[in-house]
Amino acid sequence: MEEAAELANYLPLSFKTPKEQEYIEFLWDAFEMNYTNGKYQFAFLAYHMLTMSFVYFNIWQIKQTEPGDFEKGLIGFGRDEKTLIEATSPFAFSIVPERTMLRFLKLIACDNGKIGTYVKLVDDRNNSAHPNGNIYFSTPAAVDIKITEILRVVDEIQRHSRPVIERCYREFLLKSHDPDEREYSEASDQIREALIHANYMSQRDIGVCLEYNLGDLREFDEFPSIEALHQQLHAAYGNA
């Protein structure tokens, strides 16, 4: 179960509402309780729900940072198109079947082969959740193998998301470097609220921001204040 905790590094550090945070905490509690008590099949169900939440958060970041690409990805969604465009929370994506929602990952260059692997995890969850008389995960070893597979998938999706996170961070630096123009005068508050909270950023996302190369921003007259904001991110989160 120790390895399973790694998924937390891919989930948001801050949520839009207390209800969203409560939901994620509930899933973690359900996973840990069922794993500890030997109910491994139910532990897998909770862990898969956490994983799909991670996927929704990533798709939300695409929606926020690359809205044009997101709208192109809606081709074929028919009656759900308006709801998805107007969504105010990543959890609104749950109106679409998970298998279908995974198609959005093509927007971050996940090919059909990879998406097929992700869909297989959904199928495994569906099989586990149906009253078919089968206990697919009856030992800790069985569920641990699946957890290892899930974490590999999560890390793969995260790596594909890197360009989106970099674009998001670049826009943040350009819009937030001036204390007189941004929402919060204190840099730490601006980073916490306008970057991390507003974009459902995880520890892994912040890692991408910390590694961001400021080279292409040196042409701006405001570069010193941009660099100062970037340094503030390092000061606050560089040792996390």
Rank of each mutant, 00 (worst) to 15 (best):
R192N: 13
L173P: 04
S128Y: 10
R182L: 15
E171R: 12
L174P: 02
L174H: 02
R162L: 08
S128T: 13
V143F: 06
R167M: 08
H177P: 06
R182A: 14
Y200V: 03
I135C: 12
A194D: 14
N134P: 05
I150R: 02
Y136D: 04
E149I: 02
D155R: 14
D205N: 10
R192P: 05
Q158T: 09
Y136I: 02
I150N: 01
L121W: 11
Q190E: 15
N127E: 08
A187H: 11
E149Y: 02
F137H: 04
I147T: 00
I165Y: 00
A129Q: 08
E181T: 11
C209P: 11
T139W: 00
V164K: 01
S176V: 13
N126K: 11
I165V: 05
R170I: 07
N199P: 13
C168V: 00
A129Y: 11
M201I: 03
Y169W: 08
I147D: 00
E166P: 07
H130D: 08
R125N: 00
R204E: 06
D178N: 09
L121Y: 10
S202A: 00
I196M: 14
A187W: 03
L195V: 02
P179S: 08
I145S: 03
Y200F: 09
I135H: 09
Q190H: 07
F172R: 04
C209F: 11
N134M: 12
D189V: 14
R204N: 06
L151H: 00
E193F: 03
N199G: 15
S188N: 14
H160M: 10
P140L: 03
D144H: 08
S138E: 04
D124Q: 15
A198T: 05
E171G: 13
I147V: 03
S176R: 12
N132M: 14
I191E: 11
E193R: 01
Q190R: 13
H197W: 01
V208D: 04
R167S: 09
R167E: 06
P163L: 07
I145P: 00
D123P: 09
G133V: 15
I196R: 13
S202K: 08
V164Y: 02
I147Q: 01
V153A: 09
G133M: 10
C168I: 00
F172P: 07
E193N: 06
Y136M: 03
L173K: 08
R162D: 02
A187Y: 05
I157Q: 07
R167H: 05
V208K: 04
M201A: 10
S176P: 12
S188E: 15
D189L: 14
D180M: 07
R182S: 13
R125Y: 01
F137N: 02
K175F: 12
V208S: 01
A142D: 04
D180T: 13
A142F: 07
V154E: 02
Y136S: 05
D124N: 14
N127Q: 11
L195Q: 08
N199M: 14
Y169M: 13
T148A: 03
N127W: 09
I157E: 03
A187M: 13
H130S: 07
A141S: 08
H197Y: 04
I196E: 11
S128R: 09
P131K: 15
I196V: 13
N126D: 08
S185G: 12
Y200A: 11
I157R: 05
E149C: 01
C168H: 01
D205W: 10
A194Q: 12
A194Y: 05
H197P: 12
H130F: 13
V143R: 06
R167F: 05
